[in-house]
Design a protein around this nucleic acid. Structure first.
Lengths: 167, 167
DNA sequence: AGGGGTGGTTGCGATGTGCAACTGGTTGCG
DNA sequence: CGCAACCAGTTGCACATCGCAACCACCCCT
């Protein structure tokens, strides 16, 4: 399951875990879509992940320490939760999303959203990390009255998605 | 060579290009190691990329608009250069590197370097982007007297690498 | 002509992917 | 209880990709 690292490089260490396309998409659905169960991840995946691939990736992510499987026994609704290491993938995800937003055709209105993400980026990301800690680790977030960062980030990406779909 | 996108999501768009492990490692060697030629990339790769895989990835990255191939005729020294889109991958790379640094065993002395990257991050990255623009696009950088950001970033990662190798 | 350097290509066995069908277990309901 | 529906996966199989090694074609220099 886990193999010896190809090199000691920090980027390589990250790539060996996050370098798989499906791994990132699964984490995206868990973080932005709050999908915690196997079937939710299968059905909600816009890209149509196969069940064997999903099972394989979930195992790998648990083994790598990015997820925990809250076992409820076989046949029951088992839930997957992000660990702190998994939550810390959010900055990578946002960097990827920004890149995806910027380097695409039909980007007129996307620029606005992209700049929103870039300028308010660090604060939004920090706030969303607090939210994820609350959802997945049970840690109460410091400022519960603040507007939901995840909604803002998700709205930015969904707006980009809609804009792209409408052209 | 290029397939239809699996979805309109911005993160998916990025993952379809950058989601391959080798693609990120090739870009890393070009950006941090300033390797521009096929043989340099083969020989310098710590992970040992095979020539057919490297050829395939270089083609894909050129097709995706992240690299240009400065052709000098077959059999001559052809050089690969980053495009602006390729240069903009640097923030993703740094986010990955930070994650790789943080979530690893034997992290005592790495913490220092990681915080250097996190705190001085945006400025360092912006400065290194200017350097890459100079190297690959021929754009003179605004402040040539400034210390080389790429050296600082590279030193941080190499220190992490050595620290890891010595344990 | 020949040796060394360039950027690759080709063959082949091992490994991984994607699709569909299926398994074993639990839950809900009459 | 009986039975359908739902759950989290597993299995089988055709196909594609990976990784390794050997091999090409081309150019420059002596």
């Amino acid at each position: 399951m886990d193999t010896a690292p190809r090199s000691g490089c920090a980027i390589n260490a990250a790539v060996e875990v996050l370098g798989d396309p499906w791994a990132m998409l699964v984490l995206r659905d868990i973080m932005f879509g709050n999908r915690r169960h196997f079937r939710e991840l299968v059905a909600g995946s816009e890209e149509g992940i196969a069940t064997n691939i999903l099972a394989s990736r979930l195992k790998q992510l648990v083994a790598a320490g990015l997820l925990t499987r809250d076992d409820a026994g076989r046949g029951q609704r088992a839930a997957y939760s992000l660990t702190e290491a998994g939550i810390q993938v959010l900055p990578v995800m946002v960097a990827l999303g920004n890149w995806g937003l910027a380097h695409r055709q039909g980007e007129r209105r996307l620029r606005v959203r992209a700049e929103l993400l870039r300028d308010g980026g660090p604060e939004l990301v920090a706030a969303m990390i607090d939210e994820l800690r609350e959802l997945h680790l049970g840690v109460p977030r410091p400022d519960p009255g603040a507007p939901r960062a995840s909604d803002q980030l998700r709205a930015a990406y969904e707006a980009a998605l809609l804009d792209n779909a409408s052209r």
